[in-house]
């Protein structure tokens, strides 16, 4: 059985990863705000083309923080940088803010159009030892688990009057101090169950394994990787 993402970018996840790395190289090698701005527009166009959910409430909330940090980068260059003329400081500030935005938006495009399990399977099928691939998948499974456990522990703290309703330095300190141990204790129990389950289904029996799900890798993917590599080399050489 083969699996390919439903998004308009029907590329193998490895080709998408190569495109992301290449975009980040270009973002860091951009020398003027105009170059960085063009790249930013291109990334936003890709978002629109792929239907990546820029308007999702969760991302919109994060977007606020991202723009705030970009604004701080911009302002800090104008206010704190010494030496260059004011106009130059504005340009440097804009360039730094745009670099940051480009890297974040390109990463968001990659994450929102690529299923982590597809990436893991693609990497394993292209030669990554499967132990590393499943370590990545297990880590992905632990992310929501840690989030849920931390939320329950925090609720338990609130019910005891330990955590404060509003974030204060004292409340944040107590929350961190009292959250770590309960979350780690429950995570250890889960790791034990997972290892019994994996070994009980012969994980690690053979040096390689077969796969039900095939992540196709075709000529288009090879060309996309080559183009990404060429773009990154050009950026490193020319800009």
């Amino acid at each position: 059985m083969s699996a390919r993402s439903d998004t308009p970018i029907g590329l193998n996840p490895i080709a998408r990863l190569a495109a992301l790395v290449s975009t980040c190289v270009v973002a860091f090698r951009a020398r003027t705000p105009l170059q960085a701005g063009v790249l930013c527009c291109a990334i936003l166009l890709m978002h629109a083309a792929t239907g990546a959910p820029l308007g999702q409430p969760s991302f919109r909330r994060r977007l606020r923080g991202i723009f705030l940090f970009s604004a701080i980068l911009f302002a800090s260059q104008i206010l704190l940088a010494r030496g260059p003329a004011p106009a130059e400081r504005v340009a440097v500030g804009a360039l730094m803010a745009l670099r940051f935005l480009n890297v974040v938006l390109a990463s968001h495009l990659f994450v929102s159009t690529t299923e982590p399990e597809c990436l893991a399977y693609a990497l394993m099928q292209s030669g990554l030892p499967y132990r590393y691939g499943f370590a990545f998948l297990a880590a992905m499974r632990f992310v929501p688990y840690f989030r849920d456990q931390a939320q329950t522990v925090r609720q338990a703290q609130m019910a005891r009057g330990i955590a404060l309703d509003r974030a204060t330095p004292k409340g944040v300190f107590l929350m961190a101090r009292y959250t770590f141990i309960p979350v780690v204790v429950s995570a250890l129990g889960r790791v034990e169950s997972l290892s019994v389950s994996m070994e009980g289904r012969c994980f690690g029996l053979h040096p390689t394994r077969t796969f039900r799900k095939r992540i196709p890798f075709g000529l288009v993917d090879a060309l996309a990787i080559a183009a990404s590599a060429a773009l990154a080399i050009l950026a490193l050489a020319a800009m």
Partner: peptide
Amino acid sequence: EAQFCTMSVEDEVAFGPENLMCSE
């Protein structure tokens, strides 16, 4: 939940046979 090591139903059920090197 604690014994799952993949993300989808079919991948989870296929996990053991894949480790046994069964054919597709």
